[in-house]
Simulated scan of single mutants.
Amino acid sequence: MKQQLTLPHRFFFIGLGLLVPFAILGFMNLYNDFEFAWLSYKGTDRNLFTGNQNFTDEIALSGTILALLFMSFARTKKEDEFIQQLRLRSWHWAILANFIFTIIGIWAVYGSDFLSFMIHNMLTILIFFLLRFLYLLYSNRSAKD
């Protein structure tokens, strides 16, 4: 069996542990304008960051993406050809669903809400993959029992 580029199984739980606080931080920042004062930066005209910047949203989104990547690329306890086939089919389904979701959003969302839609859309491919992969794993395990 050719080894896929995957992380050890424990990274799924590390990712799950990281996902909860970073996702909560992201939602608090996006919908309640929550920011950490210690992540503020006063830029000048000569710097890359001009004006007053706060990096709470960047930290929240980066942490959420990292957590979802950990969960998506973590091996299962028993990684065999069948699991790899499920993983591949789940990625295929997630990419297709993500682009259908994107096309619908392009035609249905306008104005400043479009930026919010695209921010959420960055995460949907990983979320769709995880939901599909875990569903297929669960349904195949329950069918064996």
Rank of each mutant, 00 (worst) to 15 (best):
S40I: 03
G17L: 13
F133D: 05
N98M: 06
R141Q: 15
E81A: 12
N52V: 08
L7A: 05
M1V: 10
S139T: 15
R87T: 03
F101T: 02
I65L: 09
L96M: 07
R10D: 08
T56H: 02
G17M: 11
K144I: 14
L123D: 03
N140E: 15
L96R: 07
T50F: 06
K77D: 04
V109R: 08
I127K: 05
E79V: 00
I83K: 00
K77E: 03
R132V: 05
Q4W: 14
W91I: 02
A60N: 01
F70S: 09
L30I: 14
N98K: 04
N121C: 01
F13H: 15
M1E: 03
L130S: 07
L19I: 09
I100K: 02
T76Y: 09
E58R: 11
I119D: 10
A37V: 15
Y135M: 07
K42D: 07
T50C: 04
F101W: 15
F55D: 00
D113I: 09
N54P: 00
Q84T: 00
A143K: 15
I125F: 15
F114L: 11
F133P: 02
L19K: 10
N140P: 02
F13N: 12
I95P: 01
F70T: 11
A143D: 14
L88I: 13
Y138K: 12
W93C: 10
I100P: 00
G51D: 00
T50N: 05
F114H: 03
N121V: 01
L66I: 14
F49N: 00
M118I: 00
F13I: 12
P8S: 01
L88G: 04
S90P: 07
E79W: 05
G26A: 08
R46A: 04
W107N: 08
M71C: 11
F13S: 13
L115G: 05
F114T: 03
T64A: 14
G51S: 01
S72L: 13
Y31C: 10
I83A: 03
I95W: 04
G51T: 01
G63H: 05
W107L: 13
T102P: 00
S62P: 05
V109A: 07
L69D: 10
